[in-house]
Design a binder for these strands. Structure first.
Lengths: 342, 342
DNA sequence: GCGTTGAATCGAACCGGTTCGACAGTCTCG
DNA sequence: CGAGACTGTCGAACCGGTTCGATTCAACGC
């Protein structure tokens, strides 16, 4: 193992001089700096992370705490994760991924052991017990997901209220007057998945403003339940001409449900979903949808977190609540309702 | 920040005694042990990870190196990752997730800086440049994916050759004689994705033994390409009655392709895929399939890695090549070909 | 010509754990 | 009863970085 002592010896200087030559925190003659750099190259010196962390109290690692729940849609999670890890690396940080069920415990462990410089919390709920711990921790934190109380953390999320409004408005502009919204299972809401009712609230509000009918239903988060749910909902509201899908599993299941019923979008029914572009491309999801911006949310959270880490404990920049405005990716699944066409 | 010195003071002993009381590496009187434990509880002491790593040369962290390629099927990757992180935590380890494109560089950085005790490599290719670095590293490594040269690492993978044989055999047993195999894009093979040709080889071998016809095609890894590919392949081989899907994107796209052609499985065509159970449940994938055992592979890799870490550098257990035998999950998409039925 | 300033470097201390060697006290056994 | 072994504890050293004075030497101003 090559240490800074070896580098110093090879360059013919003391350990402290070698350290200063590398960090540039004190003026060192150019000649010496060059000798040190040469020695580093030759010996392949890479500093011991533990020793550096001990000395500086900085690990250059961020902790990423996911909540991977059976009843939420797992495949979409990877894009948040990659957004975080990629941006972190660009900024010189590595990422410790924690999937532990007991997020509070994990947070405490990582924080007290000083394994990480800061935290990104994914899938943050309305009242998330991890937040109380995070506020007391000495490391800063950023969340993906909008909790009820945002103080002490930087918050990033898609603007779900506006997304709901936008879905309804888009359908209205195309001529629709009766819509169905398919949300996540009820217990996702009860557990604190506020994005579910935020979107629903936005949709309801705009529907009321525009004098439209909106049927709201909670659907299962995986097959075969969601397929059954979709069929029931379609049976129950034969006059509805537009379908709004917040539930990603519903989007995944819809193509075969429509096919089985002999329907096509947008000829027989118009559809708008809410999932990532990448996700749509990977699967057979030909529906117009609001981009869930997973990658972008992960990147922004890390960006802000690192800024806060590097500002130090005295940094007093106000905390952010950054709600990304929804953007519609048009994939041609919205048209005028059949009754308005030739 | 509470250190072991604080604990020692509170318990009225020296730092070394406190350390021994906690580690149990020397006999300490029960009374003192209790006082130390009480102090730990009261002060909420959690050891500083950097300091411990520096002293012991063990970080209790494993490095997880993924390769997340645009032309491979990303959503399935999460299950490998969760298998790794969950098993690691059960064994007392945290997981550093690296998505860096330059895996060789990342490996070198993590290894030399002693940030991790060992490595798990995902999506390992036939000739994977990361392996050379890994063999020279001082930390042990395990792979998910079977490379050409397995020495110096523990290797875990699904038995793809046997999977190919099993797919063909299953179709043969149901009465089919002409099959289509849809694989990954050709450049995935060229890049070293050996699992593609392994499954194809197994399928071809068994087809030859049984005197069956097997058409092999490479399909795109996402929409809309894969939908087009599937249609072309079905057009080209109108007499084929069985479809084998190694390509996960093909499985995801097939329901709507079949629906659009007015076909149903297994009435008009029999289908067998290769993807995880979890994946099938999440999406509308009603096809009988060989379980890709992602979670299990991740778990086994970690299990073995940790065993090797804790055996230390003198541990001389022979390296494993563990190929998990394929298991078919019957979802009812295989039946006798139409010609053999009433 | 002398005190002052600044540049370049070094030695020592420190971060917070673990571990080795020493030592005092007690027990055991011949 | 004394040698030897064992128990329980402590102080000091070490892991490999960073950082804080202190020191040396040259340049500079008055």
């Amino acid at each position: 193992m090559v240490t800074i002592g070896d580098v110093a010896k090879a360059a013919g200087v003391s350990r402290s001089t070698a350290s200063y030559a590398l960090s540039g925190k004190r003026t060192i003659s150019p000649a010496v700096v060059q000798r040190v750099l040469d020695a580093v190259d030759e010996l392949g010196y890479i500093p011991n992370a533990g020793a550096r962390a001990l000395a500086t109290s900085h690990t250059k690692v961020i902790g990423l705490l996911g909540r991977f729940l059976d009843d939420e849609f797992a495949p979409a999670m990877l894009q948040y994760i990659l957004g975080v890890t990629n941006r972190a690396r660009e900024l010189g940080y590595d990422t410790l991924l924690v999937s532990e069920e007991d997020g509070v415990h994990a947070l405490q462990r990582l924080s007290s052991s000083r394994m990480v410089d800061g935290f990104v919390l994914l899938n943050v709920a309305e009242r998330d017990s991890r937040l109380e711990v995070l506020r007391k921790a000495m490391q800063p934190g950023a969340t993906v997901g909008l909790p009820a109380e945002c103080d002490g953390v930087d918050v990033f999320d898609l603007d779900f209220i506006e997304s709901g409004r936008l879905m309804v408005q888009t359908m209205h502009d195309a001529g629709h007057r009766e819509l169905i919204l398919v949300s996540q299972p009820v217990h996702v809401v009860e557990r604190g998945g506020a994005y579910v009712w935020r979107l629903a609230d936005g949709a309801r509000e705009r529907a009321a403003e525009l004098g439209m009918t909106l049927h709201h239903h909670h659907g299962d988060s995986s097959q075969p339940g969601i397929g059954k749910d979709l069929n029931e909902v379609l049976d129950r509201h034969p006059d509805a001409t537009g379908l709004l899908l917040n539930n990603e599993a519903a989007a995944a299941a819809l193509p075969s449900v429509l096919a089985a019923r002999g329907l096509a979008a947008p000829d027989d029914i118009s559809v708008i979903g809410r999932y990532s572009d990448d996700f749509a491309r990977t699967f057979s999801l030909p529906f117009t949808a609001i981009d869930s911006a997973a990658d972008e949310l992960g990147r922004r959270a890390v960006q802000q977190l690192v800024a806060r880490i590097e500002a130090g404990p005295d940094g007093t920049a106000p905390h952010l609540v950054d709600l990304i405005p929804p953007i519609v990716n048009d994939r041609g699944s919205i048209a005028a309702p059949p009754s308005l066409r030739g």
